[in-house]
Simulated assay, not measured.
Amino acid sequence: MISRVYHATLFALYQLCIVIGIVAMPLALAARQAGVSLPIHRVLENVEEAYEASHARMK
């Protein structure tokens, strides 16, 4: 039961990170023009790895 809740929470967090990345795209483009990089991709990669690991454990 807890693993299902954990898996669902990771899925929701993964989807939320994707939405934040899409919404922050104009800010990221402006920051890139200024020579600054936003680390959204690192957060998304970490959440994706955790989600895939929990998905593999559930099988």
Rank of each mutant, 00 (worst) to 15 (best):
M1L: 13
I2C: 02
S3T: 09
R4G: 00
V5T: 12
V5L: 15
V5Q: 13
Y6M: 10
H7I: 07
A8V: 08
T9I: 03
L10Q: 07
L10F: 06
L10D: 04
F11K: 12
F11W: 14
L13Q: 03
Y14M: 09
Y14A: 04
Y14L: 09
Q15G: 04
Q15H: 01
Q15P: 00
L16E: 10
L16S: 11
L16K: 08
C17L: 13
C17N: 12
I18N: 07
V19R: 09
V19M: 07
I20M: 08
I20S: 07
G21W: 00
I22Q: 03
V23F: 11
A24I: 03
M25A: 10
M25L: 15
M25T: 13
P26T: 07
P26C: 07
L27G: 03
L29M: 14
L29E: 03
R32S: 03
G35C: 07
V36H: 12
V36S: 07
V36P: 01
S37I: 14
S37G: 06
P39Q: 13
H41V: 06
H41Q: 08
H41Y: 02
H41E: 11
L44F: 15
L44Y: 12
L44D: 02
V47D: 05
E48K: 02
E48R: 05
E49S: 11
E49Y: 09
E49T: 11
A50R: 15
A50L: 15
Y51A: 02
A56L: 09
R57N: 09
R57C: 00
M58H: 13
M58L: 14
